[in-house]
């Protein structure tokens, strides 16, 4: 099967690879790059567990072919913390226990990242709407909404200081 050359940046690092066109971005990240924090929960674009940032925007990586990211930049959950230092959104999810089994969590964190970039102080309804494209079976969502709210406050403090 014909392979296609691919160059992209993932979590700040340039990668070159040969990929089959049908390889989804999610599988490329997980298998070729070993970034297994991106999870596959449905592979048809509904559950949101595979959410990554493509050029800063939250997208389903199961609905993109890796070849489509040629020349683009991808951020996965592994790219959120700076070394040992958690991203404020991660901190908030930990403090609020905005997760249980953790399978869906990377997707929620990246969706929250995109939301908070565009809307620094979202209302509870705006948070609910924004994360309703990510499914969680464990938490009942209340702690996730609280996490996003807390993250917004943390980011606000960070901006002020």
């Amino acid at each position: 099967m014909a392979q296609v050359a691919l160059r992209l940046k993932v979590n700040g690092v340039e990668h070159e690879a040969l990929v089959e066109p049908r390889l989804t971005l999610a599988d490329f990240l997980r298998t070729d790059l070993g970034l297994t924090g991106t999870h596959l929960g449905c592979e048809h674009g509904v559950c949101g567990a595979c959410t990554v940032l493509l050029d800063g925007e939250a997208v389903r990586s199961c609905l993109l072919f890796a070849v489509q990211t040629e020349g683009h930049e991808v951020i996965t959950i592994e790219g959120m913390a700076q070394g040992e230092e958690l991203h404020p959104i991660q901190e908030a999810f930990w403090e609020q226990h905005g997760l249980q089994c953790g399978f869906c969590t990377p997707g929620f964190i990246l969706s929250a990242y995109n939301l908070l970039q565009e809307n620094a102080q979202p209302s509870e309804e705006e948070i609910q709407a924004a994360i309703s494209g990510n499914l969680c079976r464990c938490t009942g969502y209340q702690s996730i909404v609280a996490s996003v709210k807390a993250a917004a406050e943390k980011l606000q403090l960070q901006r002020e200081s």
């Binding site: 070993g34 924090g37 958690l86 403090e95 953790g102 399978f103």
Partner: peptide, 23 residues
Amino acid sequence: EPVKASADLRLITGRGVFVDDLH
């Protein structure tokens, strides 16, 4: 006390190990 869940740290950083993550 609401002790922070220790497993959460690996799960929020993408370091959890689910079966499909094994290679």
